[in-house]
Design a binder for these strands. Structure first.
Lengths: 257, 257
DNA sequence: GGTAGAGTTCGCCTCTGGGGAACAAGCTTA
DNA sequence: TAAGCTTGTTCCCCAGAGGCGAACTCTACC
C-alpha cells in the first residue's frame, strides 16, 4: 500500500449504505418485518424487500416465521476477525493472567475509527459486572485504554482523533475539553500508563498500559475495578505495575511479522 | 408476517452483492490491498476502491498500513446474534453440562439456509480436537446434528433441503444417495436421535437429539468423540441417553415466547 | 530523478435500483 | 362465507447511481 492518507471521504455506494442500514436495523430490532423496517428506515417496502432478499441470499440474515434475524454466519465472521488479529492467543493469555492476578476485570483494546474497541475481556474472581463486551466500543477521551492508545499514537493521528472527540460528560470526572485532554495525554506519555478515575462510568477506576510493536502502538491492556477497592496507592502503584507487566508480556511474546 | 414461502428468488441488488463479495475476500485473504482484490474478484480498481471506502465508512472493515481487515464491530454483531437466539444461556448451560458429563465435545446447532450451523461448542476433559467452531457450518446429510434436525423438520422443508443436498463423500461411511438418507431419517425419527458413524469426518462418531418447541424443531444437541472410544453400546445406549437428556433439559428450561 | 507500482479521482454511459401501485395471500371479523 | 384489513410480493418506469477505463498522484526503490 503506497499511500495511506488519513481518513478521506471518497466515493461511496448508496445502495450498499442502505443495505447496511437495513442490516443494522435487523441487529437492533427484534425480528423485524418488511413493513416494520420500511417504516423505520423511511424506504419503500419494495426497496426494503429487495435488500432483505439480497442479505438473505448472502446468508447474512435468516428469515423465520416471526421476522428476520442475523444468521450464525456472523459468528463465523467473528472467528475470522480474531484470526486476523496478530497474536490473538498471546493477548488472551496475558489478559487472563492479569485478571487472575488482580481479581478484577482485565481487557485488551485497540483503536478503530477513532474509538476504542474491546478485543477481549477477562473477569477475575472478584470482578464487578460491567456492560462492556468484546466488540463493544467506547470513546477514547474518557477511558484509560483510549488515553493509553492516544498518548502513544503518531501526533497527526492523535490530533485527528482529538479534533473529532465529542467530549460528553460521561462520568463525574470526565475530561471535557481539548486542553485538559492534551495535558493528561502528556502526563500519560511520561508515566507510561493511563488512568481513568470515574471518567467513563461512575464508581469505576481503570489503569491501562500501551502495547507497542517497535515504535507504534498496537493496542492497550487495562484493569478495571470499583473505586471503593482501588485506592490512589494501587492506582499508581501495584496495579499500574501489573498492567505494565502484562503489556510487556504481550510485547515480548509477540511474533513480529 | 403473513406468508413465509420456501426460499424464493426475488429481486437482488447487484452492488450489494459485490460489496459482500469484497467483504468475503477481506475475510479470507490476509490484509488484501485494492489491486489484489480487483485482480481476484475481476472488477476494476475503481469499483473495488469505492466498495472498500463504503465498507470502511460503515466501520465494517479497517484500513491498516498493510491492507484491509475486518473491524471489531463484527464481534459486536456476533454479540447481537447470540442475543437474538432465544434462551442462548440455557443452551450454553446444557451443552457445558453435557460436555462435562461425557468428557467429549458437545455442540448445539440449528438449521440455516439448508445446512447446520453451530451455535455453541463445549469441550469435555478428554475431548478430541476438531476444526469446528461456533458459527461454522456443515452439510445436513453427513452430520448427526443435521440428521436430527432434518428428521423432525416439516416434510416440505425436509424435502427441499434433501433435494438440494450435494451428497459428497465426506467420511468413509457418508450416506451418498437420497434413498439412503430418507431411510436413515425415518429410523432417526423413530428412535428419537440421530447418529453419525464416521460419515462426516473419518474417525469421529456423533450422536444428536433434536430440541423441540411444541411440534417444531428449534435446534439439536450432539456429542462427538473418537470412534475408538465410542463403542456401539455407548452409541445407542448411555451416550444417546445423555444427549436426549440434555435436549430435554433445554426444552424444559426454555421460556416460550 | 526516473521508473514502477500502488492508490485515487474523474467523467461517461448504461442499466440498476428505488418508488409507487397493483397484486396475492393470510388473518380477523361479522 | 364473505368482506375487509394487513402483510409480503411483483411489476414497471425513469432518474441517477455505479462500474469502467483512463488519467492523475504519491511512494518507494533503484
Amino acid at each position: 500500500m503506497a499511500n495511506a492518507p488519513n481518513e478521506r471521504t471518497g466515493r461511496r455506494i448508496q445502495s450498499v449504505e442502505i443495505a447496511f442500514t437495513v442490516l443494522d436495523a435487523v441487529r437492533k430490532n427484534d425480528r423485524p418485518s418488511v413493513t416494520e423496517l420500511a417504516d423505520e428506515l423511511g424506504h419503500s417496502k419494495s426497496t426494503i424487500h429487495s435488500h432483505l432478499q439480497t442479505l438473505e441470499s448472502e446468508e447474512i440474515i435468516v428469515r423465520e416465521e416471526d421476522g428476520y434475524r442475523l444468521s450464525l454466519q456472523v459468528l463465523d465472521m467473528a472467528n475470522d476477525v480474531r484470526d486476523q488479529i496478530a497474536n490473538y492467543d498471546v493477548i488472551v493469555d496475558a489478559v487472563d493472567e492479569l485478571a487472575n492476578e488482580t481479581g478484577e476485570i482485565a481487557q485488551f483494546g485497540i483503536e478503530e475509527h477513532g474509538h476504542v474497541s474491546y478485543l477481549y475481556k477477562a473477569r477475575g474472581n472478584q470482578a464487578v459486572e460491567t456492560a462492556s463486551r468484546a466488540g463493544g466500543k467506547q470513546p477514547m477521551y474518557s477511558t484509560s485504554l483510549g488515553k493509553a492508545l492516544l498518548a502513544f499514537l503518531p501526533s497527526d493521528r492523535q490530533e485527528e482523533i482529538v479534533s473529532k472527540a465529542a467530549f460528553e460528560q460521561r462520568g463525574p470526572k470526565t475530561i471535557t475539553d481539548r486542553a485538559g485532554l492534551y495535558e493528561e495525554l502528556e502526563a500519560t506519555a511520561e508515566r507510561g500508563y493511563a488512568i481513568d478515575d470515574e471518567e467513563n462510568i461512575e464508581g469505576l477506576r481503570c489503569v491501562a498500559a500501551p502495547v507497542r510493536n517497535g515504535t507504534s502502538v498496537v493496542g492497550a491492556v487495562s484493569v478495571t475495578g470499583p473505586a471503593s477497592r482501588i485506592a490512589d496507592d494501587d492506582f499508581h502503584g501495584e496495579l499500574a505495575e501489573s498492567v505494565q507487566r502484562a503489556a510487556n508480556v504481550i510485547e515480548l511474546n509477540t511474533k513480529f511479522s
